[in-house]
Amino acid sequence: MPSIKQFQVTFDCAEPERLARFWCEVLGYVVPPPPEGYTTWDDFKQAQPPEERDAWFACGDPSGVGPRLFFQRVPEGKVAKNRVHLDVRVGTGLVGEERVAVLEAECARLVALGGVRVRLLLADEENESCLVMQDVEGNEFCLD
């Protein structure tokens, strides 16, 4: 049985392009070029029937290593804690105050982009410190 080589992470959301652009800034991802035959994404959107405009958006790792992120509009809002979340690895290899300082600096950058700081979880016997945040639509993620 062949192994899976690629996967994408899909987010249900209210505003796909806004959320995709937030995650581009968080991860250093890029928006791909518009579909063939369109000069800009706005041209593509205008060519769609009104009910399909802004229905989805995607972004990807420019190096091709990380998964593609796909954002699809859904009618219902977020009502509970995420069952899956992303851990953004900014403090790998760091411990103690140095790790917390890096987490806090990245948190400040993401808050300026519209993210929300939820809480700092300090290191214990099993885990290093991490910082819980929410993206621009309230989806939880961790700075780790």
Results as ranks from 00 to 15, higher is better:
135 D>A: 03
79 V>P: 00
129 S>E: 00
11 F>E: 14
116 V>Q: 14
40 T>A: 00
40 T>Y: 04
89 R>G: 11
131 L>T: 09
43 D>C: 03
40 T>N: 06
32 P>A: 07
76 E>R: 08
131 L>V: 06
100 V>D: 13
56 W>Y: 10
72 Q>T: 03
70 F>R: 08
7 F>V: 07
77 G>S: 14
30 V>Q: 04
117 R>I: 12
133 M>C: 01
116 V>M: 06
19 L>S: 08
142 C>F: 01
32 P>R: 08
68 R>Q: 15
14 A>T: 02
35 P>K: 06
109 R>A: 06
13 C>P: 02
85 H>V: 11
1 M>Y: 14
115 G>M: 01
116 V>S: 02
67 P>C: 14
128 E>T: 02
25 E>S: 00
24 C>M: 13
101 A>D: 15
14 A>E: 06
68 R>I: 13
58 A>T: 14
17 E>N: 07
48 Q>G: 04
28 G>W: 04
111 V>Q: 05
116 V>N: 12
47 A>G: 15
130 C>D: 09
55 A>Y: 07
24 C>W: 08
86 L>T: 15
60 G>I: 05
59 C>W: 12
21 R>P: 02
96 G>Q: 13
111 V>E: 09
75 P>H: 12
71 F>Y: 02
66 G>W: 01
141 F>T: 03
128 E>F: 04
113 L>C: 15
19 L>K: 09
8 Q>Y: 12
7 F>Q: 11
6 Q>F: 14
53 R>H: 08
39 T>L: 14
105 A>E: 12
126 E>V: 01
108 A>V: 07
63 S>L: 11
117 R>F: 14
103 L>M: 14
35 P>R: 02
27 L>D: 02
45 K>P: 00
47 A>M: 11
2 P>A: 14
77 G>Q: 13
72 Q>Y: 02
58 A>Y: 01
10 T>N: 12
9 V>K: 09
5 K>F: 06
131 L>W: 03
86 L>H: 08
2 P>E: 11
5 K>V: 06
51 E>H: 07
